[in-house]
Amino acid sequence: MIKLFASDLDGTLLNALHEADRTIRGAIKKAGELGAHVVPATGRSVLPIGDRGFTGLKIDAVCANGSIVRGQNGEVLKTFSVDPAFVEELLCAFPQICFDCCTPDGMFSSGSYEMHQAGFKRDGLMRRIIMRGMRARGGAHEEQFFDQPLSSILSHEVCKINCRVTSEELDRELKAFLADHADTVVNAPFDPVMFEITDKD
C-alpha cells in the first residue's frame, strides 16, 4: 500500500555523522525493491547525488522546504517560486537583514558574508556545534553569492528565502511583516531563531 516514503535528513534519516551509512543505504534499497519510492525531504536547495552517502541510489529529492523538486541526477523537475513582488517588498523593507534567496541556480544573498555569519550568533552553544558539524561533513551544497543587488536576485526564480535576525526587535518586526503577507507566503523554520520563507502553497 505504501508508495512513497519521504524523510527529513538530519536527525531523522541520516546517522549522527549526517551521512547515509550501510544500514541506511540498505533500507533505502530494500524499500525500492518492494516498490516504494524513497525521497529525502530537506530544507537544502540541492542534494547532489554523491552527497551524504547517497551515491548510486536512485532517489529524487524534495528540496528547499518543498519548493524545489529534483530528479535522480539533480535536475529540476518542479519549482514553486515566491512572488517576485513580495521578494522586492521584503528586501526593500529590511535592508539591515541578510536574506539568502534560494534559487535552482544557487543562493543569492542580499547582504555580505559578515552579515550572514552574524545571524548565527543567537544560536545556543549546542546548536552552533551541531551546525558546525553539519557544514564540516557536508561541504558546500550550492554556490552562494553575497552582496547581490535586488535586480540580480530578481533575475532568478526565488523559491525560498532564509535569514537569521540579530535582534529581538527586528525579529518581531519581520514576524509582523510576514503575518501581514500570510496570503502569499509561509514561514516554516527548522529552528525558532531562523526564518525559512516559501510560497504558501
Rank of each mutant, 00 (worst) to 15 (best):
M107F: 13
M107S: 00
F108Y: 15
S109T: 11
S109E: 11
S109M: 11
S110L: 06
S110C: 10
G111W: 01
G111C: 09
S112Y: 06
S112P: 06
Y113N: 08
Y113K: 13
E114C: 05
E114N: 12
E114Y: 06
E114G: 12
E114M: 10
M115G: 08
M115A: 07
H116W: 12
H116E: 13
H116P: 04
H116D: 15
Q117T: 12
Q117M: 15
Q117L: 14
A118T: 02
A118D: 13
A118I: 02
A118H: 08
G119W: 05
G119I: 03
G119H: 07
G119C: 10
G119E: 09
F120G: 05
F120V: 07
F120R: 04
F120M: 10
K121I: 07
K121Y: 08
K121E: 15
K121L: 10
R122C: 14
R122Y: 06
D123G: 03
D123L: 15
G124P: 04
G124H: 12
G124F: 06
L125W: 11
L125R: 10
L125V: 14
L125P: 14
L125D: 14
M126P: 01
M126G: 05
M126T: 13
R127Y: 13
R127T: 10
R127P: 00
R127A: 14
R127L: 04
R127S: 11
R128I: 01
R128S: 13
R128V: 00
R128H: 04
I129F: 10
I129G: 00
I130D: 15
I130G: 04
I130R: 06
M131H: 01
R132T: 14
R132H: 12
R132W: 08
G133E: 06
G133P: 00
G133R: 08
G133K: 05
M134D: 10
M134Y: 12
M134A: 12
M134V: 11
R135E: 11
A136H: 05
R137V: 03
G138Y: 00
G138W: 02
G138R: 02
G138T: 01
G138S: 09
G138Q: 04
G138L: 03
G138D: 05
G139V: 08
G139N: 12
G139M: 06
G139T: 12
A140L: 09
H141S: 14
H141E: 13
H141C: 07
E142W: 03
E143H: 02
E143T: 03
E143V: 03
E143Q: 05
E143M: 01
Q144S: 13
D147E: 06
D147S: 05
D147G: 04
D147R: 00
Q148F: 04
Q148D: 06
Q148Y: 04
Q148V: 05
P149D: 04
P149V: 01
P149C: 00
